Amino acid sequence: DVEPGKFYKGVVTRIEKYGASINLNEQVRGLLRPRDMISLRLENLNVGDEIIVQAIDVRPEKREIDFKYIP
């Protein structure tokens, strides 16, 4: 289970102007929005990149997770 405040290694699977889709595994994925990137710009991400993200909002009833990137 993903817990708010914990850090996870994820893989960038899609990049859109509203954010990047991050997969932690086949069943768990979430969104990294541009506003939640401290020192990383969306255009510097590539599909397949592995990054460390922090879960900031977990809504299991909607199967949604928001991530934050902290270098």
Score class of each variant (00 low, 15 high):
residue 59 R to Q: 06
residue 35 R to L: 08
residue 60 P to K: 11
residue 13 T to N: 04
residue 21 S to H: 15
residue 32 L to G: 01
residue 18 Y to R: 12
residue 10 G to M: 05
residue 34 P to K: 08
residue 2 V to F: 11
residue 2 V to T: 03
residue 12 V to T: 02
residue 26 E to T: 11
residue 71 P to D: 08
residue 25 N to I: 06
residue 42 L to E: 01
residue 53 V to Y: 00
residue 42 L to M: 08
residue 48 G to S: 03
residue 23 N to Q: 15
residue 41 R to M: 09
residue 22 I to V: 10
residue 14 R to G: 10
residue 22 I to Y: 02
residue 53 V to K: 00
residue 53 V to Q: 00
residue 30 G to C: 11
residue 63 R to F: 13
residue 51 I to W: 02
residue 62 K to L: 14
residue 48 G to D: 05
residue 38 I to Q: 10
residue 63 R to I: 08
residue 22 I to L: 03
residue 12 V to A: 00
residue 26 E to S: 13
residue 56 I to C: 08
residue 9 K to T: 09
residue 68 K to G: 13
residue 34 P to S: 08
residue 64 E to Q: 12
residue 69 Y to Q: 08
residue 14 R to D: 05
residue 8 Y to F: 04
residue 63 R to W: 11
residue 26 E to D: 14
residue 6 K to F: 07
residue 25 N to Q: 06
residue 46 N to E: 11
residue 58 V to D: 04
residue 45 L to H: 01
residue 52 I to V: 11
residue 26 E to Y: 10
residue 17 K to I: 14
residue 20 A to L: 07
residue 2 V to K: 03
residue 42 L to F: 07
residue 56 I to K: 11
residue 52 I to Y: 11
residue 14 R to P: 00
residue 39 S to A: 12
residue 68 K to L: 09
residue 8 Y to D: 00
residue 11 V to F: 08
residue 43 E to K: 09
residue 41 R to N: 09
residue 47 V to H: 01
residue 39 S to E: 14
residue 38 I to F: 09
residue 57 D to E: 14
residue 2 V to I: 15
residue 8 Y to I: 01
residue 32 L to A: 01
residue 27 Q to H: 15
residue 4 P to F: 08
residue 28 V to T: 12
residue 48 G to A: 02
residue 42 L to V: 05
residue 50 E to D: 08
residue 52 I to E: 05
residue 45 L to F: 04
residue 68 K to V: 07
residue 30 G to L: 07
residue 29 R to V: 15
residue 43 E to T: 08
residue 19 G to E: 03
residue 36 D to L: 05
residue 25 N to K: 06
residue 71 P to H: 09
residue 65 I to K: 03
residue 27 Q to L: 12
residue 45 L to W: 01
residue 69 Y to T: 02
residue 47 V to L: 11
residue 63 R to T: 09
residue 51 I to R: 00
residue 43 E to W: 11
residue 36 D to R: 03
residue 4 P to Y: 09
residue 47 V to S: 02
residue 42 L to S: 02
residue 41 R to S: 12
residue 35 R to D: 10
residue 10 G to W: 06
residue 32 L to Y: 02
residue 32 L to M: 04
residue 19 G to P: 01
residue 70 I to M: 11
residue 29 R to L: 10
residue 60 P to C: 09
residue 44 N to F: 09
residue 15 I to A: 01
residue 16 E to L: 12
residue 17 K to M: 11
residue 50 E to P: 08
residue 33 R to E: 03
residue 53 V to I: 08
residue 66 D to G: 09
residue 9 K to H: 09
residue 18 Y to K: 11
residue 6 K to L: 09
residue 48 G to T: 01
residue 47 V to T: 03
residue 15 I to F: 03
residue 67 F to E: 02
residue 16 E to C: 13
residue 34 P to L: 09
residue 59 R to N: 10
residue 46 N to M: 13
residue 36 D to G: 04
residue 70 I to D: 13
residue 1 D to W: 15
residue 60 P to F: 09
residue 42 L to A: 02
residue 51 I to N: 00
residue 53 V to N: 00
residue 40 L to F: 06
residue 59 R to T: 05
residue 20 A to V: 13
residue 70 I to H: 08
residue 62 K to A: 12
residue 1 D to L: 14
residue 33 R to T: 03
residue 39 S to Q: 13
residue 43 E to S: 11
residue 52 I to D: 02
residue 4 P to G: 05
residue 61 E to F: 08
residue 60 P to A: 11
residue 3 E to A: 10
residue 2 V to S: 02
residue 63 R to M: 14
residue 21 S to P: 02
residue 16 E to S: 15
residue 55 A to L: 07
residue 38 I to W: 07
residue 35 R to I: 09
residue 38 I to V: 13
residue 16 E to P: 01
residue 24 L to D: 01
residue 44 N to M: 13
residue 57 D to Q: 14
residue 42 L to D: 02
residue 19 G to D: 06
residue 24 L to H: 01
residue 37 M to L: 06
residue 18 Y to V: 10
residue 38 I to N: 10
residue 71 P to K: 07
residue 62 K to Q: 12
residue 64 E to M: 10
residue 50 E to Q: 11
residue 44 N to H: 13
residue 7 F to H: 05
residue 11 V to A: 02
residue 23 N to F: 12
residue 38 I to A: 10
residue 59 R to Y: 07
residue 33 R to G: 03
residue 20 A to Y: 09
residue 8 Y to A: 00
residue 41 R to W: 07
residue 45 L to R: 00
residue 11 V to C: 08
residue 65 I to Q: 03
residue 23 N to C: 15
residue 32 L to H: 02
residue 30 G to P: 06
residue 31 L to D: 03
residue 54 Q to N: 01
residue 5 G to H: 06
residue 29 R to D: 09
residue 69 Y to A: 02
